Simulated scan of single mutants.
Amino acid sequence: MTLHHFVLILHLLAATIWVGGHLLLAICYLPTALKKKDPQIILNFEKKYEKLGMSSLALLIITGIWMAYDFGVTAETWFHFSSGFEKVVSIKLILLFCTFFCAVCAQFFIIPNLKPNNINKMAVIILTVTSIGVTMLILGSTLRYGGI
């Protein structure tokens, strides 16, 4: 096994935890929370998942950048969109920034004021981050064929 292959396996395991956790939240916990108008259901899940989820996200960032460099997509070529690999890496970086923006909004504006009457705001964040995660997973799968 090459070092690149090992890094890819770590990346895939971290993606499984990150995307899988958000799919679990969006599909299993969020509908119940919305139906009952109970934000505590979401907060309890977040409390249990946060350490594992954030560790996975950090590992995704590290291994993603590592593999980008392995493919010759260095910081100097990010956002050039000139090759299939550069397009995928650049779009994934943009989506990472969007995820970060959602996290900041949730942590500083939505969660501190989360109540039954505004649970829909949190639902939008959850569905957005989940959709971004699935999109990043799909984009990553295109690298096997040279990107998009």
Rank of each mutant, 00 (worst) to 15 (best):
residue 67 M to P: 04
residue 56 S to I: 06
residue 9 I to G: 07
residue 28 C to S: 13
residue 36 K to V: 02
residue 4 H to F: 13
residue 59 L to N: 04
residue 64 G to P: 01
residue 24 L to H: 15
residue 14 A to T: 05
residue 87 K to T: 08
residue 63 T to A: 01
residue 44 N to E: 12
residue 71 F to I: 11
residue 58 A to Y: 08
residue 20 G to K: 08
residue 58 A to S: 05
residue 52 L to P: 07
residue 48 K to E: 12
residue 66 W to Y: 15
residue 49 Y to N: 03
residue 17 I to L: 03
residue 42 I to Q: 00
residue 84 G to Y: 02
residue 38 D to Y: 04
residue 46 E to R: 03
residue 60 L to V: 07
residue 68 A to K: 00
residue 76 E to C: 10
residue 38 D to P: 06
residue 24 L to Q: 09
residue 40 Q to W: 13
residue 6 F to E: 10
residue 33 A to H: 01
residue 80 H to D: 12
residue 81 F to Y: 14
residue 27 I to Y: 09
residue 77 T to E: 09
residue 20 G to Y: 05
residue 52 L to Q: 09
residue 62 I to F: 12
residue 27 I to M: 09
residue 39 P to W: 02
residue 42 I to D: 03
residue 48 K to V: 12
residue 7 V to N: 09
residue 60 L to N: 06
residue 47 K to T: 14
residue 82 S to H: 15
residue 30 L to W: 02
residue 56 S to R: 02
residue 25 L to H: 01
residue 50 E to W: 14
residue 23 L to R: 00
residue 69 Y to L: 01
residue 36 K to E: 07
residue 65 I to W: 08
residue 16 T to I: 09
residue 78 W to P: 03
residue 52 L to Y: 09
residue 12 L to A: 11
residue 87 K to P: 00
residue 43 L to M: 14
residue 21 G to W: 02
residue 4 H to M: 14
residue 64 G to I: 01
residue 29 Y to A: 05
residue 26 A to H: 11
residue 55 S to E: 06
